[in-house]
């Protein structure tokens, strides 16, 4: 070995070279560790706060905790308490603690419809106290699609039942509504007949009077008899009309009451529908938006996959096609 050292210049000061190499490597490793630590917020001072949930579903250790879209910490630990509820310990960067107030809420939500689950903390009101270390905040779980659909179903179901009852009530031949309509129809029919009868009577009267005047002396007595008879008939008719009007007057308040009642029922049903729609409506646009996002993403993914070799080899490029012209047809 001594012979080699003396002969080869590369081995001169080899100890110093190796030493330098190891020192540089160690410095590099330390810098790398420090860099990763800074990136992972290892050296950032933290504060622990808690919330208690009924279930640990979708909550995992290391899960991001966000406030107004910023990552402010992570889920540190999950544990069960004495009554089997889940105690969740959050590790929050100290500099963000000023925004977490006693009325802040932790909410389990998703980033997008199919994104990762995160814990989102609401900032809380301006005048509320800032939460201290090991403080507890309220937790609520964002409703899923199934829960929202179930809720919507529960709200709409009674309304639909009411509507069904109303329709059934309206269609029932024995209901007040139908009876009212029948009475109205009957009254209007009677009135029409009476009017026709009166018209014809007046016409006959005019006709007979003119004849009577022309044949004054000769037919005076006869005419008078006829006039008397006509007047009797008229009196009878007027009495009939009077009876009809009286009957109408008597029935009308009942009819109006029944109509009012029906209208009240309809109004009530409309109000309930409106209320249910108002409750459901804020969630509908976001659901639609999310649905559109998912469809767009899926289309983008499919388009991208289509362009990947060798899949692209099997996908026919679309083109304008000409119809085959048959020489025999």
């Amino acid at each position: 070995m001594k012979i080699m050292k003396e002969a080869d210049e590369r081995f001169v000061n080899i100890e110093k070279k190796i030493g330098m190499f190891i020192i540089i490597a160690l410095i590099g490793m330390a810098a790398g560790i420090a860099f990763i630590g800074i990136q992972q917020d290892v050296f950032t001072p933290k504060t622990e706060i808690f919330f208690v949930a009924d279930s640990g579903r979708d909550i995992t250790e290391g899960q991001a905790v966000k406030l107004s879209g910023f990552k402010i910490g992570k889920v540190k630990k999950l544990s069960l308490d004495d009554i089997a509820r889940v105690k969740v310990e959050l590790s929050i960067n100290k500099k963000y603690m000023k925004w977490i107030k006693s009325d802040s809420k932790a909410r389990l939500t998703k980033e997008g419809l199919i994104g990762e689950s995160i814990i989102e903390i609401t900032p809380g009101s301006l005048h509320a106290k800032q939460i201290t270390e090991n403080g507890i905040i309220v937790f609520e779980r964002e409703k899923g699609l199934t829960e929202m659909a179930e809720e919507l179903k529960n709200e709409i179901k009674p309304v639909l039942l009411d509507i069904k009852q109303i329709v059934h009530y309206v269609n029932d031949p024995q209901s007040n509504f139908k009876q009212t309509l029948r009475n109205l129809e009957k009254v209007s029919g009677d009135l029409s007949a009476t009017r026709q009868y009166l018209d014809s009577l007046v016409q006959n009267t005019e006709k007979n009077l003119s004849v009577a005047i022309q044949n004054t002396d000769k037919n005076l007595t006869t005419a008078m008899v006829k006039v008397n008879s006509i007047l009797d008939s008229s009196k009878q008719t007027i009495e009939n009309t009077d009876n009809v009007i009286k009957r109408f007057d008597k029935d009308m308040p009942n009819l109006l009451r029944m109509v009012n009642k029906s209208l009240e029922n309809v109004q009530k049903a409309t109000d309930e529908i409106k209320k249910a729609t108002e409750q459901a409506s804020p969630q509908i646009p976001s659901l639609l938006e999310k649905g559109n996002d998912v469809a767009d993403s899926a289309r983008e993914v499919i388009d991208s996959v289509k362009q990947v070799w060798p899949i692209s080899l099997y996908i026919e490029v679309p083109e304008n096609k000409i119809l085959k012209i048959d020489s025999y047809e």
Binding site: V308, W309, S312, V317, P318, N320
Partner: peptide, 22 residues
């Protein structure tokens, strides 16, 4: 040669015309 081969991409207008044709 393999992966770099991209199928010819058509504009939205061309695709619309083809859609009508189909």
């Amino acid at each position: 040669i393999g992966c770099g081969h991209k199928p010819p991409t058509l504009s939205d207008t061309h695709l619309k015309a083809i859609d009508f044709n189909q």
